[in-house]
Amino acid sequence: MNIFRLAGDVSHLVAIIILLLKIWRSKSCAGISGKSQVLFAIVFTTRYLDLFTVYISAYNTVMKVVFLALSYATVYLIYMRFRNTYDSENDTFRVEFLLVPVTGLSFLENYAFTPMEILWTFSIFLEAVAIMPQLFMITKTGEAESITTHYLFFLGLYRALYIANWVWRYHTEGFFDQIAVVSGVVQTIFYCDFFYLYVTKVLRGRGKMTLP
């Protein structure tokens, strides 16, 4: 554990809580891609199967359980509780275009051809692209509420901090997880365009982020 890793995990947690609170308080999930949230729930489910097989630390176990619970709560709020506010007409990204290649890749490129390893790899690859329905939705409607952009900012910050964590771990422990690092870098690149808009539009302006 290093400061980048801890800050990354905290950013991830903050992002998820921001989204959950936004939906809960406004009683609306307008502007939120339910598809992205389902993909994140699948990511956590397939990655954290090791909760049943290996104990790493209390921190690790608690965080995994919290991420799982919060992601399922988010999906519940979007598709059940506040279903009538869900903007399905603009949440039209075809997730099969993500799921099929990600499934194929996880069978081809993994550390071992076992169900657990393939599912872990699948979760890493899927996480890299899971935000695409949300970004697609913003592009389609041309705007995002500022609270939604704060959510995306913390999600992107989490990814950037994980890269710093890997650089740190590589130099101090010789740790290098090729699958996680390559997908993590790809994932972070998706946020670059958004980061630019966030700084120029949201932080300097106020209210909604509108696309040029």
Partner: peptide, 10 residues
Amino acid sequence: KEETDVKDEL
């Protein structure tokens, strides 16, 4: 990295 390595990251 080996399969038996513990994946300690989230």
